[in-house]
Design a protein around this nucleic acid. Structure first.
Lengths: 267, 267
DNA sequence: CGCTAGGTTGAATACGCTCAAAGATCGTGG
DNA sequence: CCACGATCTTTGAGCGTATTCAACCTAGCG
């Protein structure tokens, strides 16, 4: 313990020595206070995870998929492919995200899910999910809370593609990823691992690869971001947020829930 | 009763004499078999509804909103406004849709909701929602099922604006509305009430009003749709679906859930 | 060393936008 | 009942953002 304290004091918060908490514990930290039992129940959910190599489909649209997956480590994305071969990425999945929260309720997956990097997924089968809803109402509420957060992310993605310029879209996406990664302690200061190819960014934001390239060059020239060996650094958070018309409260203000949430958690 | 039978036999399915079932009953019909108790519980939820005039905000982004609203009658939409005044509509709400399913879990609404026509909303407070989850697991599952369907609709909206041409976007939106309205018996054959102005369509699909106008003219000239006094008629469903690259199974194949769903409903 | 995936750049094109102005339609009040 | 205003639709013309196609560069890897 003492050793750990010393290590923590020496090494920056973002080093490889992650704290011992599970990713879900980190995710829900600051949202609600979990009991020890709940923490261990969450830990149990994440205890067995399977590894997937980068660029592998974990879920395929149209196929049965009744396992709710929890992304423990790595990046993935949810996407659809059109008949003519075009691809649209719906959302990115980062550690702590639930992949298929509704999986058990439907016959087939509506979107595919592919790993972007090497990943670790834990899987909860319908019985386990059912169990949570029956015996752990507070955790069940947190699952719903996650679903609501994901819904907000999709809404923002729609706004992003629907009404923003290429420059704004990219700036906005980078800001969002920063915030989301911060919530699971995966950023260090204003920089983070950035495993997205320009093609992936294009397919996310409805842009061509070429235009993503030119636009990111502008963002770099404007001194807003910097990229080296797979990381991105935000040089001027304020300026980037402004360029993106990024609502700094989005995702943030949703993290201190009360009403029903506090009622469930105070009883 | 006999009179009603006669009336039903005489009048086409799409006349003003709606069947006596509540909109939620119609919505869930074909998805699962509800017990009489459940039907009456649903009816109770919808018993008290408030009227709103057209073009009124029912929910405002950033404001507290802990009431889950159920749209009983009329059309509404969920949207965000940007600092520079641009607006993006996230999704349309039609009868039977839940407006704020996650409302109770968050401090503030992330998007605004505005009526498009005169509307009737029923409201369920957090206690009522909690009650459902505690005592009516099957109904709770249906609520989650609705959330999952809404999630699929948002994903499809992202694909639509991200990777489709203006022509395809409009065709695709019209197809989606047709299917969704069919599910709550609000269409008649291949035509339905269409209260969307071109500005609203533009703000939904990320297009300018002018371009929506020109593109719809093309759809009309191509013999795919027809518009008169607030209604739209799809002249050639097959052709429209093809033009939109509309996946005819989308939304449809999700309506016969098994796995967890059937387990819950068979016990 | 050569292959492959990803990044960069140029030139021509196209899709959709903006600005502007003129019809339609509908509700409302004189 | 007609006139008026407001809202929505339609059309034209010029422009700009983003696309497409094509080539070349770079880095990582077997």
């Amino acid at each position: 313990m003492i050793l750990k304290d010393i290590v923590d004091a020496i090494t920056p918060a973002d080093n490889d020595e992650k704290d011992a908490r599970t990713v879900l514990e980190r995710k829900f930290d600051g949202v609600v206070d979990l009991s020890d039992e709940e923490i261990s129940h969450l830990a149990e959910l994440q205890s067995e995870s399977n590894g997937f190599a980068a660029n592998k489909d974990v879920v395929e649209a149209g196929e049965p998929a009744d396992l709710t997956l929890i992304l423990i480590e790595g990046w993935a994305y949810r996407y659809k492919t059109l008949e003519d071969g075009k691809r649209q990425i719906v959302s990115f999945l980062i550690p702590g995200d639930f992949v298929n929260l509704y999986a058990a309720l439907f016959d087939e997956a509506d979107t595919s899910v592919r790993t972007l990097t090497d990943c670790q997924f834990a899987g909860a089968n319908p019985d386990q999910m059912l169990e949570i809803f029956k015996t752990e109402p507070r955790l069940a509420a947190l699952l719903c809370w996650s679903a609501g957060e994901h819904d907000a992310i999709l809404a923002e993605q729609i706004v992003r593609i629907g009404r923003r310029s290429a420059y704004e879209r990219i700036a906005h996406l980078v800001m969002e990823l920063l915030i989301r990664l911060e919530h699971v302690d995966q950023s260090s200061g204003d920089s983070f691992e950035f495993p997205l190819t320009q093609e992936v960014i294009g397919d996310t934001l409805g842009l061509s690869t070429v235009h993503v390239n030119r636009t990111m060059k502008r963002l770099r020239n404007d001194g807003l971001i910097e990229q080296n060996n797979g990381r991105i650094a935000i040089k001027d958070t304020r300026a980037l947020a402004d360029a993106a018309q990024f609502d700094r409260d989005y995702l943030e203000r949703r993290r201190v829930p009360h009403s029903l949430m506090s009622r469930i958690f105070d009883s």
